[in-house]
Design a protein around this nucleic acid. Structure first.
Length: 433
RNA sequence: GGAGAGAUGGCAGAGCGGUUGAAUGCGGCGGUCUUGAAAACCGCUGGCCCUUCACGGGGCUCGUGGGUUCGAAUCCCACUCUCUCCUCCA
Protein backbone atom coordinates (compact mmCIF):
# COMPACT_ATOMS: atom_id res chain seq x y z
CA UNK A 1 0.00 0.00 0.00
CA UNK A 2 1.23 3.47 -0.82
CA UNK A 3 2.05 5.91 1.92
CA UNK A 4 -0.70 8.51 2.12
CA UNK A 5 1.88 11.00 3.29
CA UNK A 6 3.93 10.60 0.11
CA UNK A 7 0.75 11.20 -1.86
CA UNK A 8 0.13 14.41 0.07
CA UNK A 9 3.67 15.72 -0.07
CA UNK A 10 4.81 14.50 -3.46
CA UNK A 11 1.74 13.91 -5.63
CA UNK A 12 3.92 14.58 -8.66
CA UNK A 13 6.18 11.66 -7.85
CA UNK A 14 3.19 9.35 -7.48
CA UNK A 15 1.75 10.53 -10.79
CA UNK A 16 5.06 10.00 -12.58
CA UNK A 17 5.53 6.48 -11.22
CA UNK A 18 1.94 5.56 -12.03
CA UNK A 19 2.21 6.92 -15.54
CA UNK A 20 5.34 4.83 -16.07
CA UNK A 21 3.37 1.73 -15.17
CA UNK A 22 0.75 2.80 -17.63
CA UNK A 23 -2.03 3.19 -15.09
CA UNK A 24 -4.43 6.11 -14.68
CA UNK A 25 -3.35 8.84 -12.27
CA UNK A 26 -6.92 9.90 -11.62
CA UNK A 27 -6.81 8.36 -8.14
CA UNK A 28 -4.27 10.93 -6.94
CA UNK A 29 -6.66 13.88 -6.92
CA UNK A 30 -9.54 11.72 -5.79
CA UNK A 31 -7.66 10.42 -2.75
CA UNK A 32 -6.31 13.87 -1.92
CA UNK A 33 -9.83 15.29 -1.93
CA UNK A 34 -11.14 12.48 0.27
CA UNK A 35 -8.18 12.91 2.59
CA UNK A 36 -8.77 16.65 2.97
CA UNK A 37 -12.41 16.08 3.81
CA UNK A 38 -11.50 13.33 6.23
CA UNK A 39 -8.98 15.44 8.10
CA UNK A 40 -11.24 18.44 8.51
CA UNK A 41 -14.02 16.25 9.90
CA UNK A 42 -11.56 14.51 12.20
CA UNK A 43 -10.28 17.78 13.60
CA UNK A 44 -13.81 19.03 14.20
CA UNK A 45 -14.89 15.84 15.97
CA UNK A 46 -11.78 15.73 18.12
CA UNK A 47 -12.29 19.27 19.29
CA UNK A 48 -15.85 18.42 20.33
CA UNK A 49 -14.63 15.30 22.10
CA UNK A 50 -12.02 17.33 23.96
CA UNK A 51 -14.78 19.63 25.21
CA UNK A 52 -16.86 16.69 26.33
CA UNK A 53 -13.91 15.06 28.09
CA UNK A 54 -13.27 18.32 29.92
CA UNK A 55 -16.85 18.35 31.23
CA UNK A 56 -16.56 14.74 32.38
CA UNK A 57 -13.36 15.61 34.21
CA UNK A 58 -15.20 18.45 35.93
CA UNK A 59 -17.75 15.97 37.24
CA UNK A 60 -15.11 13.62 38.53
CA UNK A 61 -13.41 16.46 40.39
CA UNK A 62 -16.59 17.92 41.88
CA UNK A 63 -17.42 17.39 45.57
CA UNK A 64 -20.97 16.44 44.72
CA UNK A 65 -20.63 14.40 41.53
CA UNK A 66 -24.35 13.68 41.19
CA UNK A 67 -25.28 17.33 41.30
CA UNK A 68 -22.51 18.34 38.93
CA UNK A 69 -23.50 15.59 36.52
CA UNK A 70 -27.10 16.72 36.56
CA UNK A 71 -26.02 20.28 35.93
CA UNK A 72 -23.77 19.45 32.96
CA UNK A 73 -25.87 16.72 31.36
CA UNK A 74 -27.71 19.01 28.91
CA UNK A 75 -24.46 20.49 27.58
CA UNK A 76 -22.96 17.02 27.23
CA UNK A 77 -26.02 15.83 25.35
CA UNK A 78 -25.60 18.75 22.96
CA UNK A 79 -21.97 17.85 22.38
CA UNK A 80 -22.94 14.21 21.81
CA UNK A 81 -25.35 15.28 19.12
CA UNK A 82 -22.73 17.44 17.41
CA UNK A 83 -20.15 14.67 17.61
CA UNK A 84 -22.61 12.26 16.08
CA UNK A 85 -23.52 14.46 13.15
CA UNK A 86 -19.99 15.66 12.46
CA UNK A 87 -18.49 12.18 12.78
CA UNK A 88 -21.02 10.20 10.80
CA UNK A 89 -19.14 10.59 7.54
CA UNK A 90 -15.75 9.55 8.88
CA UNK A 91 -15.95 5.75 8.57
CA UNK A 92 -17.20 6.06 4.98
CA UNK A 93 -14.29 8.35 4.09
CA UNK A 94 -11.72 6.09 5.73
CA UNK A 95 -13.12 3.14 3.87
CA UNK A 96 -13.01 5.01 0.57
CA UNK A 97 -9.45 6.17 1.10
CA UNK A 98 -8.06 2.79 2.07
CA UNK A 99 -9.92 0.99 -0.70
CA UNK A 100 -8.61 3.42 -3.30
CA UNK A 101 -5.09 3.27 -1.91
CA UNK A 102 -5.05 -0.53 -1.66
CA UNK A 103 -5.60 -0.82 -5.39
CA UNK A 104 -2.63 1.34 -6.37
CA UNK A 105 0.53 -0.60 -7.21
CA UNK A 106 3.89 0.16 -5.63
CA UNK A 107 5.85 3.13 -6.96
CA UNK A 108 8.39 1.93 -9.48
CA UNK A 109 12.03 2.74 -8.81
CA UNK A 110 13.64 5.44 -10.98
CA UNK A 111 16.41 3.01 -11.98
CA UNK A 112 14.17 0.75 -14.05
CA UNK A 113 13.52 1.14 -17.78
CA UNK A 114 10.43 2.73 -19.28
CA UNK A 115 8.11 0.60 -21.33
CA UNK A 116 4.70 -0.93 -21.12
CA UNK A 117 5.55 -4.63 -21.49
CA UNK A 118 8.28 -7.26 -21.47
CA UNK A 119 9.70 -6.13 -24.81
CA UNK A 120 11.12 -3.13 -22.94
CA UNK A 121 12.89 -5.24 -20.31
CA UNK A 122 16.63 -4.61 -20.24
CA UNK A 123 19.12 -7.44 -20.30
CA UNK A 124 21.75 -6.66 -17.67
CA UNK A 125 23.79 -9.87 -17.59
CA UNK A 126 24.21 -13.10 -19.44
CA UNK A 127 25.91 -16.25 -18.11
CA UNK A 128 26.97 -19.30 -20.10
CA UNK A 129 25.98 -20.13 -23.62
CA UNK A 130 23.19 -22.35 -24.93
CA UNK A 131 24.34 -25.92 -25.60
CA UNK A 132 25.02 -26.90 -29.21
CA UNK A 133 23.47 -30.25 -30.11
CA UNK A 134 24.80 -32.49 -32.87
CA UNK A 135 21.27 -33.88 -33.15
CA UNK A 136 17.76 -32.45 -33.06
CA UNK A 137 17.02 -31.76 -29.41
CA UNK A 138 13.64 -32.84 -28.08
CA UNK A 139 11.31 -31.02 -25.72
CA UNK A 140 11.27 -32.24 -22.13
CA UNK A 141 7.77 -33.66 -22.31
CA UNK A 142 8.79 -36.02 -25.10
CA UNK A 143 12.04 -36.97 -23.41
CA UNK A 144 10.39 -37.33 -20.04
CA UNK A 145 7.53 -39.50 -21.21
CA UNK A 146 9.90 -41.73 -23.18
CA UNK A 147 12.09 -42.14 -20.09
CA UNK A 148 9.09 -42.72 -17.86
CA UNK A 149 10.08 -39.87 -15.55
CA UNK A 150 7.12 -37.57 -16.39
CA UNK A 151 3.52 -38.69 -16.81
CA UNK A 152 1.18 -35.98 -18.04
CA UNK A 153 -1.57 -38.25 -19.24
CA UNK A 154 -2.24 -39.86 -15.88
CA UNK A 155 -1.89 -36.50 -14.17
CA UNK A 156 -4.70 -35.22 -16.41
CA UNK A 157 -6.75 -38.29 -15.47
CA UNK A 158 -6.31 -37.53 -11.76
CA UNK A 159 -6.64 -33.75 -11.76
CA UNK A 160 -7.10 -32.31 -15.25
CA UNK A 161 -4.94 -30.08 -17.37
CA UNK A 162 -1.85 -28.33 -16.00
CA UNK A 163 -0.97 -31.04 -13.51
CA UNK A 164 1.97 -33.37 -13.71
CA UNK A 165 3.33 -36.55 -12.23
CA UNK A 166 7.02 -37.06 -11.63
CA UNK A 167 8.05 -40.68 -11.58
CA UNK A 168 11.16 -42.64 -10.66
CA UNK A 169 14.32 -40.71 -11.53
CA UNK A 170 12.17 -37.63 -12.28
CA UNK A 171 10.77 -37.55 -8.76
CA UNK A 172 14.20 -38.23 -7.28
CA UNK A 173 15.75 -35.48 -9.34
CA UNK A 174 13.14 -33.01 -8.18
CA UNK A 175 13.78 -33.96 -4.57
CA UNK A 176 17.51 -33.59 -5.16
CA UNK A 177 16.95 -30.07 -6.51
CA UNK A 178 15.04 -29.11 -3.39
CA UNK A 179 17.86 -30.43 -1.23
CA UNK A 180 20.45 -28.62 -3.30
CA UNK A 181 18.58 -25.31 -3.23
CA UNK A 182 17.94 -25.50 0.51
CA UNK A 183 21.53 -26.45 1.17
CA UNK A 184 22.77 -23.38 -0.70
CA UNK A 185 20.18 -21.17 0.97
CA UNK A 186 21.44 -22.29 4.37
CA UNK A 187 25.00 -21.48 3.30
CA UNK A 188 23.85 -18.04 2.19
CA UNK A 189 22.40 -17.31 5.63
CA UNK A 190 18.73 -18.11 5.14
CA UNK A 191 16.71 -19.69 7.94
CA UNK A 192 14.56 -22.52 6.67
CA UNK A 193 10.86 -22.31 7.43
CA UNK A 194 8.19 -24.92 6.92
CA UNK A 195 5.06 -22.76 6.81
CA UNK A 196 1.32 -23.39 6.50
CA UNK A 197 0.18 -23.81 2.92
CA UNK A 198 -3.28 -22.52 3.70
CA UNK A 199 -3.36 -18.94 4.93
CA UNK A 200 -6.05 -16.50 5.96
CA UNK A 201 -7.58 -13.74 3.92
CA UNK A 202 -5.79 -11.21 6.12
CA UNK A 203 -2.43 -12.75 5.29
CA UNK A 204 -3.20 -12.73 1.58
CA UNK A 205 -4.25 -9.12 1.80
CA UNK A 206 -1.22 -8.01 3.74
CA UNK A 207 1.23 -9.35 1.15
CA UNK A 208 -0.69 -7.69 -1.66
CA UNK A 209 -2.25 -10.81 -3.23
CA UNK A 210 -5.73 -9.54 -2.40
CA UNK A 211 -8.00 -8.15 -3.37
CA UNK A 212 -6.58 -7.69 -6.86
CA UNK A 213 -5.57 -11.26 -7.62
CA UNK A 214 -8.29 -13.37 -6.06
CA UNK A 215 -8.98 -15.00 -9.45
CA UNK A 216 -5.48 -16.50 -9.39
CA UNK A 217 -5.90 -18.37 -6.13
CA UNK A 218 -7.67 -21.40 -4.78
CA UNK A 219 -9.91 -20.58 -1.83
CA UNK A 220 -11.62 -22.72 0.78
CA UNK A 221 -14.11 -22.27 3.56
CA UNK A 222 -12.28 -21.95 6.87
CA UNK A 223 -13.73 -22.67 10.31
CA UNK A 224 -14.84 -19.09 10.86
CA UNK A 225 -16.14 -16.71 8.24
CA UNK A 226 -12.67 -15.98 6.90
CA UNK A 227 -11.72 -17.89 3.79
CA UNK A 228 -8.49 -19.82 3.59
CA UNK A 229 -6.30 -19.61 0.50
CA UNK A 230 -3.76 -22.06 -0.88
CA UNK A 231 -0.53 -20.11 -1.14
CA UNK A 232 0.45 -19.08 -4.70
CA UNK A 233 4.03 -18.70 -3.44
CA UNK A 234 5.86 -19.08 -0.13
CA UNK A 235 6.53 -15.36 -0.35
CA UNK A 236 3.15 -15.00 1.33
CA UNK A 237 3.76 -16.86 4.62
CA UNK A 238 7.43 -15.88 4.79
CA UNK A 239 6.81 -12.17 4.35
CA UNK A 240 3.97 -12.32 6.86
CA UNK A 241 6.00 -14.08 9.57
CA UNK A 242 6.67 -10.82 11.39
CA UNK A 243 3.39 -9.11 10.69
CA UNK A 244 2.38 -6.62 13.40
CA UNK A 245 5.82 -6.70 14.94
CA UNK A 246 8.39 -4.06 15.69
CA UNK A 247 11.88 -5.45 15.13
CA UNK A 248 15.23 -4.15 16.37
CA UNK A 249 17.62 -2.83 13.73
CA UNK A 250 20.23 -5.40 14.85
CA UNK A 251 17.88 -8.21 13.84
CA UNK A 252 17.91 -7.03 10.24
CA UNK A 253 18.29 -8.24 7.66
CA UNK A 254 16.22 -11.37 8.29
CA UNK A 255 16.60 -13.98 5.57
CA UNK A 256 14.09 -16.81 5.24
CA UNK A 257 13.71 -19.68 2.86
CA UNK A 258 10.97 -22.25 2.40
CA UNK A 259 10.45 -25.22 0.13
CA UNK A 260 6.73 -25.45 -0.60
CA UNK A 261 4.18 -26.36 -3.20
CA UNK A 262 2.51 -23.36 -4.84
CA UNK A 263 -0.97 -23.26 -6.30
CA UNK A 264 -2.17 -20.97 -9.07
CA UNK A 265 -5.26 -20.98 -11.20
CA UNK A 266 -3.41 -19.49 -14.16
CA UNK A 267 -6.61 -17.76 -15.18
CA UNK A 268 -5.99 -15.81 -18.34
CA UNK A 269 -3.13 -18.05 -19.39
CA UNK A 270 -5.35 -20.23 -21.59
CA UNK A 271 -3.45 -21.60 -24.56
CA UNK A 272 -0.08 -20.46 -23.17
CA UNK A 273 2.57 -23.02 -22.37
CA UNK A 274 0.06 -25.83 -22.36
CA UNK A 275 2.59 -28.63 -22.79
CA UNK A 276 5.03 -29.93 -20.27
CA UNK A 277 6.06 -28.69 -16.86
CA UNK A 278 6.40 -25.03 -17.65
CA UNK A 279 3.07 -23.70 -16.36
CA UNK A 280 1.21 -25.78 -13.78
CA UNK A 281 -1.62 -25.29 -11.30
CA UNK A 282 0.58 -26.93 -8.68
CA UNK A 283 4.34 -26.60 -8.63
CA UNK A 284 7.14 -26.56 -6.12
CA UNK A 285 9.53 -23.79 -5.38
CA UNK A 286 12.24 -22.79 -2.93
CA UNK A 287 11.55 -19.20 -2.03
CA UNK A 288 13.98 -16.64 -0.64
CA UNK A 289 12.68 -13.70 1.40
CA UNK A 290 14.43 -10.79 3.08
CA UNK A 291 13.20 -8.30 5.63
CA UNK A 292 15.68 -5.47 5.58
CA UNK A 293 16.18 -1.75 6.10
CA UNK A 294 15.40 0.96 3.54
CA UNK A 295 19.05 2.02 3.51
CA UNK A 296 20.28 -1.25 2.06
CA UNK A 297 17.32 -2.90 0.38
CA UNK A 298 18.43 -2.18 -3.18
CA UNK A 299 21.89 -3.61 -2.45
CA UNK A 300 20.20 -6.60 -0.86
CA UNK A 301 18.17 -7.09 -4.02
CA UNK A 302 21.45 -7.47 -5.93
CA UNK A 303 22.60 -10.04 -3.37
CA UNK A 304 19.33 -11.95 -3.51
CA UNK A 305 19.45 -11.99 -7.31
CA UNK A 306 23.04 -13.23 -7.23
CA UNK A 307 21.97 -16.07 -4.92
CA UNK A 308 19.38 -17.24 -7.45
CA UNK A 309 21.76 -16.74 -10.37
CA UNK A 310 24.48 -18.63 -8.49
CA UNK A 311 22.27 -21.73 -8.41
CA UNK A 312 21.92 -21.70 -12.19
CA UNK A 313 25.66 -21.18 -12.53
CA UNK A 314 26.40 -24.15 -10.31
CA UNK A 315 24.00 -26.22 -12.38
CA UNK A 316 25.75 -25.03 -15.52
CA UNK A 317 22.55 -23.65 -17.04
CA UNK A 318 22.84 -20.74 -19.47
CA UNK A 319 20.73 -17.83 -18.34
CA UNK A 320 20.36 -14.09 -18.46
CA UNK A 321 19.27 -11.46 -15.98
CA UNK A 322 16.55 -9.05 -17.06
CA UNK A 323 15.68 -5.80 -15.36
CA UNK A 324 11.94 -5.48 -15.81
CA UNK A 325 10.45 -2.38 -17.40
CA UNK A 326 7.96 -0.30 -15.45
CA UNK A 327 4.96 -1.76 -17.24
CA UNK A 328 6.06 -5.35 -16.61
CA UNK A 329 6.93 -4.91 -12.93
CA UNK A 330 4.53 -6.63 -10.55
CA UNK A 331 1.95 -4.91 -8.35
CA UNK A 332 3.97 -5.16 -5.13
CA UNK A 333 7.37 -4.47 -6.56
CA UNK A 334 9.41 -1.32 -7.06
CA UNK A 335 12.17 -3.14 -8.92
CA UNK A 336 12.33 -6.66 -10.27
CA UNK A 337 15.00 -8.81 -11.89
CA UNK A 338 13.85 -11.87 -13.77
CA UNK A 339 16.26 -14.70 -14.36
CA UNK A 340 15.65 -16.45 -17.64
CA UNK A 341 17.12 -19.88 -18.34
CA UNK A 342 17.86 -21.20 -21.79
CA UNK A 343 15.21 -23.72 -22.86
CA UNK A 344 16.16 -25.58 -26.08
CA UNK A 345 12.60 -26.56 -27.01
CA UNK A 346 11.55 -22.92 -26.96
CA UNK A 347 14.79 -21.84 -28.56
CA UNK A 348 14.91 -18.95 -26.16
CA UNK A 349 15.35 -17.85 -22.56
CA UNK A 350 12.37 -18.36 -20.26
CA UNK A 351 11.63 -17.05 -16.77
CA UNK A 352 12.83 -19.28 -13.94
CA UNK A 353 13.12 -16.79 -11.09
CA UNK A 354 11.79 -13.38 -10.24
CA UNK A 355 13.54 -11.28 -7.60
CA UNK A 356 11.79 -8.18 -6.32
CA UNK A 357 12.28 -5.33 -3.92
CA UNK A 358 8.82 -4.50 -2.61
CA UNK A 359 10.24 -1.61 -0.56
CA UNK A 360 7.80 -0.64 2.22
CA UNK A 361 4.72 -1.57 0.19
CA UNK A 362 4.01 -4.95 1.80
CA UNK A 363 5.45 -3.87 5.14
CA UNK A 364 2.91 -1.07 5.37
CA UNK A 365 0.05 -3.43 4.58
CA UNK A 366 1.47 -5.92 7.08
CA UNK A 367 2.68 -3.51 9.75
CA UNK A 368 6.21 -4.91 9.84
CA UNK A 369 8.39 -2.27 11.41
CA UNK A 370 11.79 -1.79 12.98
CA UNK A 371 13.48 0.72 15.24
CA UNK A 372 16.79 2.24 14.22
CA UNK A 373 17.67 2.35 17.93
CA UNK A 374 15.83 1.94 21.19
CA UNK A 375 14.48 5.48 21.24
CA UNK A 376 13.75 5.92 17.51
CA UNK A 377 10.29 5.91 16.01
CA UNK A 378 9.31 2.66 14.34
CA UNK A 379 9.75 2.65 10.54
CA UNK A 380 8.58 0.14 7.97
CA UNK A 381 11.03 -2.51 6.85
CA UNK A 382 11.62 -3.28 3.20
CA UNK A 383 10.64 -6.72 1.95
CA UNK A 384 12.35 -8.65 -0.84
CA UNK A 385 11.47 -11.95 -2.39
CA UNK A 386 12.83 -14.19 -5.10
CA UNK A 387 12.63 -17.76 -6.27
CA UNK A 388 15.68 -19.79 -5.63
CA UNK A 389 14.46 -21.62 -7.67
CA UNK A 390 11.31 -23.04 -9.19
CA UNK A 391 11.76 -26.84 -9.19
CA UNK A 392 9.65 -27.68 -12.23
CA UNK A 393 11.28 -25.15 -14.49
CA UNK A 394 14.76 -26.08 -13.29
CA UNK A 395 13.97 -29.72 -13.84
CA UNK A 396 12.81 -29.17 -17.38
CA UNK A 397 15.87 -27.04 -18.10
CA UNK A 398 18.17 -29.78 -16.80
CA UNK A 399 16.41 -32.43 -18.86
CA UNK A 400 16.42 -30.41 -22.07
CA UNK A 401 19.91 -28.96 -21.72
CA UNK A 402 21.38 -32.25 -20.51
CA UNK A 403 19.86 -34.50 -23.15
CA UNK A 404 22.08 -36.86 -25.09
CA UNK A 405 21.78 -38.18 -28.62
CA UNK A 406 20.49 -41.52 -27.26
CA UNK A 407 17.66 -39.84 -25.32
CA UNK A 408 19.38 -40.20 -21.94
CA UNK A 409 20.01 -37.28 -19.60
CA UNK A 410 23.29 -36.13 -18.01
CA UNK A 411 22.88 -34.74 -14.53
CA UNK A 412 24.91 -31.64 -13.55
CA UNK A 413 27.89 -32.55 -11.38
CA UNK A 414 26.80 -30.45 -8.45
CA UNK A 415 23.46 -32.26 -8.26
CA UNK A 416 24.85 -35.80 -8.35
CA UNK A 417 25.58 -36.10 -4.63
CA UNK A 418 22.01 -35.00 -3.89
CA UNK A 419 20.42 -37.21 -6.55
CA UNK A 420 22.60 -40.25 -6.01
CA UNK A 421 23.09 -40.76 -9.73
CA UNK A 422 24.92 -39.15 -12.64
CA UNK A 423 22.64 -39.88 -15.57
CA UNK A 424 19.28 -41.20 -16.60
CA UNK A 425 19.63 -43.89 -19.24
CA UNK A 426 17.31 -44.30 -22.24
CA UNK A 427 15.43 -47.10 -20.46
CA UNK A 428 14.72 -44.86 -17.47
CA UNK A 429 17.26 -46.50 -15.21
CA UNK A 430 19.86 -44.43 -13.44
CA UNK A 431 23.61 -44.77 -13.48
CA UNK A 432 26.24 -43.48 -11.12
CA UNK A 433 29.38 -42.19 -12.68
C1' G B 1 -16.33 -33.36 19.06
C1' G B 2 -17.22 -32.54 24.90
C1' A B 3 -15.79 -29.56 29.54
C1' G B 4 -13.33 -25.57 31.75
C1' A B 5 -9.85 -21.21 32.21
C1' G B 6 -7.94 -16.90 30.24
C1' A B 7 -6.70 -12.44 26.85
C1' U B 8 -3.73 -5.57 30.34
C1' G B 9 2.47 -1.80 28.11
C1' G B 10 9.14 -5.39 25.43
C1' C B 11 8.23 -9.47 29.25
C1' A B 12 6.03 -10.83 34.11
C1' G B 13 1.95 -9.16 36.84
C1' A B 14 -1.84 -5.61 39.76
C1' G B 15 -6.10 -2.97 38.73
C1' C B 16 -13.56 -0.43 44.56
C1' G B 17 -17.12 2.66 37.32
C1' G B 18 -14.38 8.76 38.25
C1' U B 19 -6.74 12.82 37.38
C1' U B 20 -5.51 4.66 35.89
C1' G B 21 -2.52 5.42 29.73
C1' A B 22 -2.60 2.19 33.61
C1' A B 23 0.63 0.07 40.43
C1' U B 24 4.85 -3.17 41.05
C1' G B 25 8.99 -6.21 39.26
C1' C B 26 12.27 -7.35 35.21
C1' G B 27 14.28 -5.55 30.77
C1' G B 28 15.81 -1.05 27.82
C1' C B 29 17.72 4.19 27.63
C1' G B 30 20.13 8.39 30.24
C1' G B 31 22.71 10.02 34.68
C1' U B 32 25.46 9.80 39.63
C1' C B 33 29.37 6.83 41.61
C1' U B 34 33.93 3.95 39.51
C1' U B 35 40.58 3.70 36.47
C1' G B 36 36.85 0.44 33.90
C1' A B 37 32.89 -2.82 34.91
C1' A B 38 29.41 -4.73 38.40
C1' A B 39 26.44 -3.31 42.47
C1' A B 40 23.71 0.75 44.48
C1' C B 41 20.91 5.16 43.75
C1' C B 42 18.12 8.95 40.56
C1' G B 43 15.36 10.04 36.08
C1' C B 44 13.11 8.46 31.49
C1' U B 45 10.80 4.43 28.83
C1' G B 46 3.94 1.62 24.37
C1' G B 47 1.41 2.48 19.67
C1' C B 48 -1.72 5.12 16.02
C1' C B 49 -3.81 9.70 14.30
C1' C B 50 -4.94 15.17 13.87
C1' U B 51 -2.69 19.96 14.62
C1' U B 52 2.05 23.10 15.07
C1' C B 53 8.10 25.83 11.61
C1' A B 54 9.04 24.39 16.57
C1' C B 55 7.84 24.13 21.87
C1' G B 56 3.34 22.30 22.53
C1' G B 57 -2.02 21.04 22.20
C1' G B 58 -5.77 17.34 21.19
C1' G B 59 -8.12 12.52 19.99
C1' C B 60 -7.98 7.14 19.95
C1' U B 61 -5.79 2.72 22.24
C1' C B 62 -5.96 -2.48 28.22
C1' G B 63 -7.82 -9.27 22.13
C1' U B 64 -11.93 -7.36 18.26
C1' G B 65 -16.84 -5.24 17.52
C1' G B 66 -21.22 -3.47 19.77
C1' G B 67 -24.09 -1.80 24.31
C1' U B 68 -25.09 0.63 29.35
C1' U B 69 -23.27 5.46 31.70
C1' C B 70 -22.02 12.38 32.27
C1' G B 71 -17.75 8.89 32.73
C1' A B 72 -15.68 1.83 31.32
C1' A B 73 -9.36 -1.82 31.54
C1' U B 74 -13.32 -2.26 35.24
C1' C B 75 -20.65 -3.78 34.03
C1' C B 76 -23.59 -6.36 29.67
C1' C B 77 -23.73 -8.91 24.65
C1' A B 78 -21.37 -11.08 20.38
C1' C B 79 -17.02 -12.64 18.01
C1' U B 80 -11.77 -14.10 17.67
C1' C B 81 -7.63 -16.26 19.70
C1' U B 82 -4.77 -18.91 23.50
C1' C B 83 -4.26 -22.57 27.36
C1' U B 84 -5.82 -27.12 30.32
C1' C B 85 -8.57 -31.84 30.66
C1' C B 86 -11.38 -35.69 28.03
C1' U B 87 -12.33 -37.77 23.10
C1' C B 88 -10.31 -38.64 18.27
C1' C B 89 -6.12 -38.88 15.12
C1' A B 90 -1.08 -38.79 10.88
Amino acid sequence: MLNLEVLRREPGRVRTASRRRGISTEFVDRVLALDGEHRSLLTAVEQLKAQKNALSAEISKAADKKAKAAELRPRIAELDASIGSAGSGIPRLEEAISTALAEVPNLVDPSIPDGSDETANREVRRWGSPPQFAFAPKPHWELGEALGIFDFERAAKLSGARFSILRGAGARLSRALAQFFLDRAARNGYTEINPPLLVSETTMWSTGQLSKFSDQMYAFEGDGDEKLYLIPTAEVPLTSLHRDEILAAEQLPLQYTAYTPCFRKEAGAAGKDTRGLFRQHQFEKVELVWLTTPARSFDDLETLTSHASGLLQELGLAHRTMLLAAGDTGFNSAKTYDLEVWVPSFGRYREISSCSNCTDFQARRSAIRFRQDATAKPEFVHTLNGSGLSLGRTLLAIVENGQRADGGISIPDVLQPFAGFASIEPDGSVRSR
